[in-house]
Design a protein around this nucleic acid. Structure first.
Lengths: 220, 220
DNA sequence: GATTACAGTGAACGACTGTACACTCAACAG
DNA sequence: CTGTTGAGTGTACAGTCGTTCACTGTAATC
C-alpha cells in the first residue's frame, strides 16, 4: 500500500530487503557506499579537500580497495556529478507539468525547486559548491546547467507572448530564470530552519517581476 | 603628467621608487607578498587546498616565517577577503555616478563591472569561488554582498518609479540585480578572449528586461 | 655604543597523503 | 568438483603537511 517513489527518478522503489547478494551487486553496493560517504563529507568542505583515504575509511574500506571502483578521486567526482545531475534532471522533468497561467507556473516551479532541494540537499549543495569552485568538475556542471537552461528556453518558446522572441532573447530569459533558481537554491541551503517560506516567496516575486517585463520587451 | 590612479581605491598612486625600507615597511611588504602569491595560487583551485608551506615558499619564505604575519592560513584568508572586498567597494563607489536614464544607468553599470572585473580578475575570481565554496570565508563574503545589495537598494529608492515601493520589494529588486551582476562576473571570468562584448550585451539585456517590469509592479 | 625587539632561518617531530605490491578467500565458469 | 576471477586486505615507502623550538642578524631604541 506504500507505493513509494524515488523523488530523484520518479521511479517506483523496489523493496528487496534480503537479496542474495550476487557478486556484481556487492560491488555496486560498496561503490555506492563510497559515493555516499563522499557526499556526506562534502557537507561542509569543497571536493578538492577530500582524501582518498578518508572516503575509503568512511565506506569501511582499506585505502587500496578504493581503486577497485575508481581510478582516482577525480573519477569519483565525475560519478558524483552524474549522480547529482540525475537529481537535477528529475527536478526539471517534474517542473515541466505546466499550469497555463503565469502565476501558477511560477509558484509551481518554485515549489518544485523547494521540494527537490530539501529532499536532496547533498546533491544541490555539491552542485552549487563545485559549479563555482574552480575544480575540473566546474566545467561539466556548467555544461549541465546550460542544457537545463536550453531545455527551459524550448519550453518558454511555447508560451504565446514569447513566440515572436528571437532564440537569442529566449536564451537570455532562460539564463536569467535559471540564475534566479540557483540563487534560491543557495539561499535554501544556507537558510536557518523556518525561513523556507520567506525564501520561496521572494523567489516567486523575483520571477513575477521578470515576467512582468516580457510584454514590454522588443525582441531584436 | 601621468596622474595614475589605483583602480581599486581610486586614490592617486604614490610613486616612491627607492624608499629607505624601514623595518615595518619591509614587514608589510612580505605580508603583501604572501597575499599576492596566495592569490596567484588561487587562480585555479579553491582556497582550502592551499598549504601554508607553498604560500610561504612562493613568497620566498621559510614555512615558519609565515607565522610572523598570520596565525594560520584561515587568517590569511580573512585578509584576502578584506583586500578583495576593498576592490568590490571601489567598484560600487565608481558605479554610483548615476546617469538619469534607465538605459544610461544600465550600460554604465555593466561597463563598470566589466572594467573592474578585467582589472582585478584575481579578486573577483576569489570572491565568486569562495562565496559558494562553503569554507569559513563564505559567510563573510555573503555579509559583504548583502551590504552591497543594501546600498544598492538605497540608491534605487531615489528613482521616481521606485519611491512607492516597500523596502522589502526594494531589497528583492536589489538582490535580483546583484545576482545578475554576479552571474555576469562569473561569465566574464570564464570567458574565452573576445567574448566580452557578447557577455556585457547579454547582461544589459537582462537588466533591461527586469527594469521593464518595474512600472507594472504592484508593491505590497 | 650597548641593548633590545623581531623578521627570518633550519632542523626535527608526528600525522597524513597517494600508491605499489603481494596476499586472501569467496563467488563464479567450466 | 576444479580452476579462475576479482573485491578486499596488510604492509610498506616516499612525500607533504602544520607546528615546535632554538637560532641568527640587523634595524630600532636607550
Amino acid at each position: 500500500m506504500s507505493n513509494a517513489v524515488d523523488i530523484r527518478t520518479l521511479e517506483p522503489v523496489s523493496e528487496d530487503p534480503l537479496a542474495p547478494v550476487s557478486r556484481q551487486e556487492r560491488k555496486q553496493r560498496t561503490r555506492q557506499a563510497l559515493l555516499d560517504t563522499a557526499l556526506d563529507l562534502l557537507a561542509d568542505r569543497p571536493f578538492a579537500t577530500l582524501s582518498l583515504r578518508e572516503v575509503a575509511k568512511g565506506a569501511g574500506l582499506v585505502p587500496t580497495a578504493f581503486y577497485r571502483h575508481f581510478a582516482s578521486m577525480e573519477e569519483l567526482g565525475v560519478a558524483l556529478v552524474e549522480e547529482a545531475t540525475r537529481t537535477l534532471r528529475g527536478m526539471m522533468r517534474s517542473a515541466r507539468t505546466d499550469p497555463d497561467t503565469y502565476q501558477g507556473m511560477i509558484s509551481a516551479s518554485v515549489a518544485t525547486v523547494h521540494q527537490f532541494v530539501r529532499a536532496n540537499e547533498d546533491h544541490f549543495r555539491f552542485l552549487t559548491r563545485e559549479r563555482y569552485g574552480g575544480g575540473p568538475l566546474a566545467r561539466s556542471i556548467a555544461v549541465e546547467l546550460r542544457m537545463f537552461s536550453g531545455d527551459l528556453a524550448i519550453d518558454l518558446a511555447r508560451f504565446a507572448p514569447l513566440r515572436a522572441w528571437s532564440t537569442e532573447d529566449l536564451h537570455m530569459l532562460a539564463d536569467l530564470i535559471v540564475s534566479v533558481m540557483i540563487t534560491t537554491t543557495v539561499e535554501l541551503l544556507e537558510a536557518r530552519p523556518g525561513e523556507d517560506a520567506k525564501i520561496t516567496a521572494t523567489a516567486e516575486k523575483r520571477l513575477r517581476l521578470i515576467l512582468l517585463g516580457i510584454p514590454q520587451w522588443k525582441t531584436s
